[in-house]
Amino acid sequence: MDEPVSHVLDNGVSSGLTLNLHPLAILNISDHVTRDRLTGSKTKITGALLGTQANRQVAVVNTFELALVADVDEATFDQDFLERRKEQFKQVFPTLDVIGWYSVGATPSDEDLRLQEQFSGLVETPIFLQFNTDIPAGAKDLPLTLYESALSEGKDAEAGAKFVKLDYGVETGEAERIAVDGAQRGGMGARDESQVVGSLVTQRNAIRMLYERIEVLSSYVHAVSEGKAKADHNILRQISALLASLPTMDAAVFKAELEDEYADVQIADTFNSLTKQLNALSDYTDRHHVVFPTSSQDDYGPPGARGGKGFDRPEALAGGRRRR
């Protein structure tokens, strides 16, 4: 039996890209694979890579899932879905662009090569990330391999479009390290909760001690100004130096900034809640159209469509069809 043709060039070819992966992208891909296994889906796992590219410096920062559509005997990317998701992410993350895509497998297959060629028509020199789900026990390296396209010269069957393996590193910031650490622990257990409570108690005691010492200094300054205590110029100079080192801020300005920050937090929380509700509504609408395709098209079609009443018509607002 003939061995399958390899789609990876293994002759020391290097493109010279400096590639960095961020933990959020890795977590998103892992979460996608886990959900796909739990749901028992048979469709190919695919998604887009979001990141930045400056000259030969590439950073993969985030991802989003992609949809495939059946085209005769082979599946292709849903380009309309890709463009919509791309525009949505562009509104939230204006600095990020689609720089490639990801899938699952041990080595690139014929389908991966074909999808890479299709993606090349959407993104110039896309990066392909492959997540290997068959992780051997005791493996220490990340089960990720990154490729880019190349052309193999020759007249044999192995000539043509190929993949070139890329070296990469993991780049993370302080916020990402905290998030990854929390995800790795799987939430806050009883021990973590007790540590948090202990830390808060320590901070409260420190603030109380600071408040008591400020009261002592304030009482001393008032007593000196009223002639009830003897003035110690050394202590007064230290108090003056301490006050001079503090940032000067009017109480009204501080209150206004605090209220603005609080309002921003509330707006972000409300926006997050609305986004979740819209996603739930969108899922419900998709399922409703699948279960009741004819009824949905007849009763809730857009205004002016054949058979559609539209939401601005009286019979549609009344919630039922007009009896004849």
Rank of each mutant, 00 (worst) to 15 (best):
A106Q: 05
A75V: 04
A157V: 08
Q184S: 12
E261C: 07
L243N: 11
L151Q: 15
A139F: 08
G100K: 04
Y102P: 00
A48F: 01
L50N: 03
L236M: 09
F311Q: 13
A139T: 09
V164L: 10
Y168C: 02
V253E: 13
H22F: 09
D10S: 15
I239R: 00
S149V: 02
T46C: 13
Q130K: 07
F77C: 03
D36W: 01
G51Y: 05
L246A: 14
P293L: 10
G169P: 02
T270L: 12
H288E: 06
V92H: 04
A263P: 06
M188C: 08
D73P: 10
V197H: 11
H7R: 08
V253F: 09
E193M: 14
G189R: 13
N28H: 09
V69C: 11
D298F: 05
N279E: 14
T285Q: 11
S194T: 11
S219G: 15
N28I: 00
L151Y: 12
V104Y: 01
G12F: 06
A268D: 14
T133E: 07
K165S: 07
G320P: 00
T172V: 10
A256R: 14
L142K: 04
S6R: 11
L113T: 01
A75H: 10
K162L: 07
A150E: 02
L151T: 11
A179C: 06
A25R: 01
L17E: 06
Q91G: 09
R185H: 15
D10Y: 11
A159P: 07
G100Y: 01
S149W: 03
A175E: 13
E158L: 13
P136I: 02
E215W: 04
A190S: 13
M249I: 12
Q91T: 11
T76A: 10
S149E: 03
F89N: 09
G182K: 14
V201K: 12
D283P: 06
R177D: 13
V60F: 02
P247R: 15
H22I: 00
V196M: 12
V33E: 00
E117T: 14
Q195A: 14
L317C: 07
E212C: 11
A54L: 13
T285Y: 11
L115I: 01
Q91R: 14
D110W: 03
A316N: 07
P247A: 09
A256C: 04
S15I: 07
L68K: 06
R35T: 06
V265W: 02
Q238P: 04
I26W: 00
